[in-house]
């Protein structure tokens, strides 16, 4: 019995140690830490972007083509919420429930086909 709890304790100690160790090494090698070089340039507070200088701000406008994708995604994504209650009681609903869901998905497919044919899914 006690042995089992000892196991937990060992894990706890190891876990805490790992976290502390990570913080410690981080502090040791970090620029302002034990071993790190001291930088006081502006660049040290910059956003890290794979070592390349950052260009412009993050507040840029996105291409408006993204908007149609987002719109379609939101619609089709949210419609799946009906699938969950249906799936849970799938056996109880039987064939009628199944065919009704097929009709529902069929209507969604008409919408998708419409968007497809109108060229919404094409990247320009």
């Amino acid at each position: 019995m006690l042995f089992k709890y000892g196991y937990v304790l060992a894990f706890l100690v190891a876990g805490v140690f790992f976290i502390l160790f990570a913080f410690l090494t981080n502090w040791i090698i970090s620029p302002n830490g034990l071993l790190g070089q001291k930088f006081h340039e502006n660049r040290s507070v910059d956003t890290y972007e794979c070592g390349v200088d950052t260009i412009g701000t993050a507040w840029v406008r996105f291409n408006v083509s993204f908007y149609l994708y987002a719109l379609l995604f939101v619609l089709f994504d949210v419609e799946t919420v009906f699938l969950y209650p249906w799936a849970v009681s799938f056996r109880k609903l039987g064939l009628v429930g199944f065919s009704e869901m097929i009709v529902f998905i069929g209507i969604l497919l008409v919408g998708l086909a419409y968007a497809w044919k109108k060229g919404v899914l094409k990247w320009e």
Binding site: V64, Y67, L71, V74, L75, D77, V78, E79, V81, F82, P85
Partner: peptide, 23 residues
Amino acid sequence: PVFVVFIITIAAGEAAVALAIFI
């Protein structure tokens, strides 16, 4: 709860139409 599911989906549809009109 069933009502909630319907409200969520309709709100999404409404938001989609709204964004289209705003654009």
